[in-house]
Computed example of a mutant assay.
Amino acid sequence: MCKLYSLELIIVNRWFPISKTYFKCGHFQESLSLSERIFNCSKCGFSRERDLNGTRESSSGGQ
């Protein structure tokens, strides 16, 4: 199906903490509870809504 639409399928480990890892600098935020909806990166200072950050991280393959 991906070939038909010229898409790339990226498979990410289901246990990889996507919403706790900032997609730009790769910093992992250990103490991010589910009730915290904003991801504030303590390494580079960037803030982003947690689910949007997770979406970007998963599109990069969770690396």
Rank of each mutant, 00 (worst) to 15 (best):
M1P: 08
M1S: 13
M1Y: 11
C2N: 10
K3I: 08
K3V: 07
L4E: 12
L4G: 04
L4M: 12
Y5N: 11
Y5P: 00
Y5F: 13
Y5K: 14
S6M: 05
S6N: 14
S6H: 11
E8Q: 14
E8C: 06
L9D: 03
I11S: 13
I11P: 05
V12D: 06
N13K: 12
R14I: 12
R14E: 14
W15S: 04
W15N: 08
F16C: 02
F16N: 07
P17T: 01
P17Y: 04
P17K: 06
I18S: 15
S19E: 06
K20G: 00
K20L: 00
K20T: 00
K20S: 09
T21R: 11
T21D: 02
T21S: 07
Y22H: 15
Y22A: 02
Y22T: 00
Y22E: 04
C25D: 11
H27W: 08
F28E: 02
F28G: 00
Q29N: 15
E30M: 02
E30A: 11
S31E: 15
L32R: 01
S33Y: 04
L34D: 10
S35R: 10
S35M: 04
E36L: 02
E36P: 00
R37L: 06
I38H: 00
I38G: 01
F39E: 04
N40G: 11
S42A: 14
K43Y: 05
C44G: 03
C44N: 11
G45A: 06
G45L: 04
F46S: 13
S47M: 02
R48C: 10
E49Y: 09
E49D: 15
E49K: 05
E49T: 03
D51E: 10
D51S: 08
D51N: 07
L52P: 00
N53H: 04
G54N: 02
G54R: 04
G54W: 04
T55I: 11
T55Q: 14
R56P: 00
E57H: 12
E57Q: 15
E57A: 09
E57S: 09
S58D: 05
S58W: 03
S59I: 14
S59V: 11
S59P: 00
S59L: 15
G61Y: 07
